[in-house]
Design a protein around this nucleic acid. Structure first.
Lengths: 104, 104
DNA sequence: CACTTACGTAAGTAAGTGCTAACAATACGG
DNA sequence: CCGTATTGTTAGCACTTACTTACGTAAGTG
């Protein structure tokens, strides 16, 4: 999860992920759409793969990649938890203030 | 938004943000809860501030910080859009190519 | 005024990152 | 087996980043 957040912090990796969002693409096909060299894309794909953001499938000499939406969902859940923690603490602070008022 | 995602990719900044999530805290009070020096926390606070993740308020010699939940909400919305964007894939590819052209 | 408090800022450093160029590995066809 | 196609890997470089130490600064206090 931490790895996924870090991986998505890079704009180019978000672009790559969007490319394989709805279709499986070979590494070379992905690299052809960017102005950086193929190894650079290959390294980004490894980062995305280790963050469980894409799946890798071999087909002959080619490597096909596709996005894994479940990890993005986990990221959304993580941020939602971030939000909820705040609400919980606000409630706790309010309760503590109430206790302080009653006990001078 | 890009800045917020990058800022939250760092675990220590997430910890800081959680600390000022429900209560305003001074920079020194925040730094006291970590094992790093005060300037390091100060620099993190600047990153969080520039990413619109915290607000800064001066009170005498002190600087009080508090989280800005709306930016986290925007981040959630961004990820939700990520999920739905498979339909607009072609437009995104065009935008990525545009960014590449502008890069020197 | 000097002195303290509570900060930020500057400079320097060690580690990490994204990139390119060159090389290595793997699968397939002749 | 040889050559081609497709891709990953390594080494090195420029740049960024998270950190520390040292210094600067603004507001309160004697």
């Amino acid at each position: 999860m931490d790895a996924a957040l870090k991986a998505l912090a890079e704009p180019r990796r978000r672009d790559i992920l969007r490319l394989v969002w709805s279709q499986e693409l070979a590494a070379g096909e992905i690299a052809a759409r960017f102005d950086v060299t193929r190894p650079a894309i290959s390294q980004h794909l490894r980062v995305l793969s280790e963050a469980d953001l894409v799946t890798e499938r071999r087909d002959g000499t080619r490597r096909l990649y596709r996005a894994r939406p479940d990890t993005v969902e986990e990221l959304q859940a993580f941020l939602a938890r971030f939000w909820d923690e705040r609400l919980d603490r606000l409630r706790d602070v309010a309760e503590a203030a109430e206790r302080d008022k009653e006990r001078p």
